[in-house]
Design a protein around this nucleic acid. Structure first.
Lengths: 336, 336
DNA sequence: TTGAAAGCGCTAACAC
DNA sequence: GTGTTAGCGCTTTCAA
């Protein structure tokens, strides 16, 4: 069996409460006592039972991060950032994959497993605005992304409309006029895809370029394979275009590869821009222009909001924070 | 405060033990009683306190996965697989990032945080064979990878030597004779890099091709940027080569990009092969040949070993399992 | 400065 | 079938 406080106390010849005091570095312990206890601790190799501590203290020292899938590079990089930040705060991170499925997301929010952690950072994908009232969690919650608003929870969002608009304007500024879109969601108004499409349309409008739905490829998950498939369809349809806006980098990458197979030169014939600023965009051929959505800032902000909420030091009322974006111009949109 | 068993019992008019029986679906509960209790549960929105359950039962329903960094795509895809498998078994996964630093890896093994989970799947990178005796954990442990052997723990490894040998032979079979290596570790015998280098040398030996250390680029972490930097160095040194073996796909990708910038055509002038079979290798230009190390099998096997160990149903003695590999030929090594 | 007692919410043994 | 009792290992009062 594992060594307990009592075992340590017995060896040190003190009460087990004194041992507890030492561990929690309470002020009122005589140095000699402390030393005796510390010797006993290392002699027995005592390690506190965090489960017992959690039960008693009411907090676990863990948070949950729920994302669609870690194999989507955006979420892998986000998780990396969040785990690093959390570690700095002494918190461990429990990861749940929802697959982006509404059912599983709802299940998660109701799951007793959430109570193994002190709070939840949740990036929904299947749920929508109509589920706003269901976004309730037994632990403090910070929402990420743009699927649901007005939930009463803290919320970190990127500037999707503005970022997408800037990406589109970056293409327009080079004289591109037929800009295909890869990654739209059917009938979506406020999800990430919906907002990025809005930014795209707004940019077109401002520049007097007509919107053409034939240029827009719809799909669900943003995997590379879907970007590739969408580009195949666009090419088969025979629509003319001189640029592609992938709603994320993996889509852009998949699309770019298919374009090249079809003999279109990037950027000479078709310029391509993505969204997310993944590491891999620096090493594609050509390197991929993109929008940096401030992933590090998202991680830090979400964690800060969550910790404040957990500690009860948060301002009353739900906070909504928007991170800064930045267009990163690379070879795939180099001027002709 | 949260609803407890007692609250439910009071509302249902039974003892709190009966409620516990219902929750744990014990056989001996009269249907009418069960129904009464279930009504009370849903009425109060009761959710079991897993911390209390853990304390009492001695297991948490969580496992820890410790990897260097999630932003290395190999580990992201591995984590994705492990989380999915774990979920099928009703387990949640806690992720720790060690940064591949020996210090942090040792710290982790000694951390009380491990006891928030029932077991550990650990992919070391900083520790080496000399640390074999330190590979001890307060919870059952399954090791991944090739940094440390003979630790007394279960171990899942890929066939690194054989896989690397096959990759090299794939290049040799096309008449390549000057094969550069990207990703070697200095003075390493048995780490992943050391074993892959051994496979490479073995292939050369069998085909009577002399080994040339000038063709080998050394480094530490396997990021794309390091692959790119290594290729810059090789080119600057002016060594001749007609193929590159990247010890993983991200290295190969970084190297390939630099090759192309330098005007070398892939595969016509230089063939390139990686290792890991990441999703992105299907979308680079050209698509990247690689070695599939059986990541799904690694995840499943590691989890099975761990669960058996946790349940005490494992065979006595440390198991060592080797997964199957497979060379995946793509455009980057297409015959000339 | 240290100790004793209570109890976090639950499960497991055993009695009824 | 159902209730009673004990206690997992710890922190938190409160008393000495």
């Amino acid at each position: 069996m594992a060594v307990t406080l009592h075992d340590v106390a017995r060896l040190a010849g003190v009460s087990f409460k004194t041992v507890s005091n030492v561990i929690n570095s309470h002020p009122n312990v005589r140095p000699t006592t402390r030393e005796k206890v510390e010797t006993a601790i290392s002699e027995l190799g005592y390690r506190p039972n965090l489960t017992a501590r959690s039960l008693r203290s009411g907090h676990t020292g863990a948070i949950t991060l729920a994302v669609p899938q870690l194999r989507l590079p955006y979420f892998a990089e986000l998780a990396d950032s969040i785990i690093s930040c959390a570690d700095d705060l002494g918190l461990v991170v429990l990861i749940e994959q929802t697959g982006g499925l509404r059912e599983r997301e709802l299940e998660l929010l109701a799951s007793p497993r959430l109570r193994m952690s002190d709070g939840l950072i949740f990036s929904p994908l299947g749920m929508g605005q109509e589920d706003a009232e269901l976004v309730k969690s037994p632990v403090p919650l910070v929402l990420l992304g743009e699927r649901v608003f007005s939930t009463g929870s803290d919320h970190v969002v990127m500037q999707n409309v503005e970022g997408a608009q800037a990406a589109t304007e970056h293409l327009l500024a080079q004289g591109r006029r037929r800009i295909a879109v890869v990654g739209a969601h059917e009938n979506e108004e406020i999800g990430t895809a919906g907002l990025r499409l809005r930014g795209y349309r707004e940019a077109l409008r401002r520049h007097g370029v007509p919107y053409d739905d034939d240029l827009v490829a719809y799909m669900w998950m943003w995997h590379r394979a879907n970007g590739a498939a969408a580009m195949h369809e666009l090419l088969e349809k025979g629509v003319e275009f001189d640029a592609v806006f992938g709603f994320n980098d993996t889509l852009a990458q998949g699309a770019m590869r298919v374009l090249q197979d079809a003999g279109r030169r990037v950027p000479d014939d078709v310029a391509v821009i993505g969204f997310d600023d993944l590491d891999e965009t620096r090493y594609t051929l050509p390197t991929l222009s993109t929008v940096d959505p401030g992933r590090g800032e998202i991680a830090r902000t979400a964690l800060k909001l969550l910790v404040d909420r957990i500690n009860g030091t948060a301002a009353p009322g739900a906070q909504q924070v928007e991170t800064k974006y930045r267009v990163v111009a690379r070879e795939s949109t180099a001027p002709r």
